[in-house]
Design a protein around this nucleic acid. Sequence first.
DNA 1: ACTCTCGCAACTAACGTTGTTACAAGACGA
DNA 2: TCGTCTTGTAACAACGTTAGTTGCGAGAGT
Lengths: 134, 134
Amino acid sequence: MKRNSRLSLALHTLRHMAGNPDRVQTSADIADHAGTNPVVVRRVLGRLREAGLLTSEKGHAGGWKLARAPESITLADVYLALDESLIATAPQEQPPACSIEHALHRRVSGVMKEIEESLIERLRETTISEVRGE
Amino acid sequence: MKRNSRLSLALHTLRHMAGNPDRVQTSADIADHAGTNPVVVRRVLGRLREAGLLTSEKGHAGGWKLARAPESITLADVYLALDESLIATAPQEQPPACSIEHALHRRVSGVMKEIEESLIERLRETTISEVRGE
DNA sequence: ACTCTCGCAACTAACGTTGTTACAAGACGA
DNA sequence: TCGTCTTGTAACAACGTTAGTTGCGAGAGT
């Protein structure tokens, strides 16, 4: 699939949890609803747990739950937790060998970094609670 | 390699041409300088030709040349010619089935589109002539 | 004990990108 | 006209990334 799908899965799941913050959901439930696989769910939500957005418990009544108030979780938090870095400029491993190439890379990287900043800025304006189907 | 490399190759080549606008260069020369393959060069530069930035000629004195004044070619022109669409949101082929998923997709797509606009805006500020190694 | 859950590692499959080979078609000069 | 240089294009291999899948171990709870 696309680069997008991890972010989609994460947001989708969090948004559902935001509507019912105390309910514990298993990976299997989530996978079922999202049309994917429990292992994939654990992979993605594991990132969110590392970032402090979710908690997980093993055992009978185990599963996933929000770790914080949904009003305090922005789209940017999710984006950053996954560190997708949509705006990728390859880190130019080779020594430039051509000053033009070097200058171009610097220029483009600069713009990309700026743009990624503003993307994050923009995502930070919305919390997961605020997105709702009409 | 990375998503980035087509854009890098295109910009690198155009920048060199901008410094010597009347010289005709073969794909082999360009590939050699960029450390890649003539076929790859033709693939990438072919896009630029379709966009009206370059011309190509077959035969003995054939090769590639700028189609326009280098001062009139911006980084955005190159980016758009390649239609890389760095900011990809998958076009959600499936019917949503879940209104939350739908709303999220709309929200995220909206932000992404905005961001891509501002990237292009930003790239439009610089012409290929203006980038130079110090 | 038994069962349910997450955690994790390993493997497969699909996809996109680059690189490579091969060949056809057009342009030019001898 | 013939040979040679070039682009144009198709087909294929190589590689990396991602999602999906299977299997097994480790905790938690009954």
